[in-house]
């Protein structure tokens, strides 16, 4: 389980790095999306992994150790929603820059070659 999550984070993050270093805006956005998955899972994993122990406490007398850590979950939940908002912002900047400059290069102009 742990090794799978670790590899998953690594693969997504690596693909993300490759993509955000590319010259086209769409590649950049895709890279950021992948990176945000990786980072979200990474933060989530800080509460350690647990299967079938959702943090839903049906009675007041419980043993906290029997539940998954709710704090990283709450943080990641907000991160997912904020991530959505920033993706929308990137997207609008992406199409706005393309309309304004006529190019979809990240610097707003085609490289001289």
């Amino acid at each position: 389980m742990e090794i799978v999550i670790a590899l998953a984070v690594g693969v997504m993050f690596g693909s993300g790095i490759w993509l955000i270093l590319r010259p086209r805006t769409f590649q950049l956005i895709t890279g950021l999306l992948l990176m945000s998955y990786a980072v979200n899972i990474f933060i989530f994993a800080m509460g350690r992994l647990s299967v079938d122990r959702p943090p839903i406490t049906l009675s007041p007398d419980i043993d906290p150790a029997q539940f998954a850590d709710p704090l990283p979950q709450a943080l990641v939940l907000t991160a997912i929603v904020i991530g959505f908002a920033t993706t929308a912002l990137y997207l609008v900047i992406m199409i706005g820059a393309r309309g304004l400059t006529g190019s979809d290069h990240v610097d707003g102009k085609e490289p001289r070659e």
Binding site: A6, G10, V11, I17, W18, L21
Partner: peptide, 17 residues
């Protein structure tokens, strides 16, 4: 860089977990 970054993240995640 991408491969190295991925590796670092993998090792880091695993070490924490």
């Amino acid at each position: 860089l991408a491969v190295a970054g991925g590796l670092v993240m993998t090792v880091l995640t695993y070490a924490v977990l």
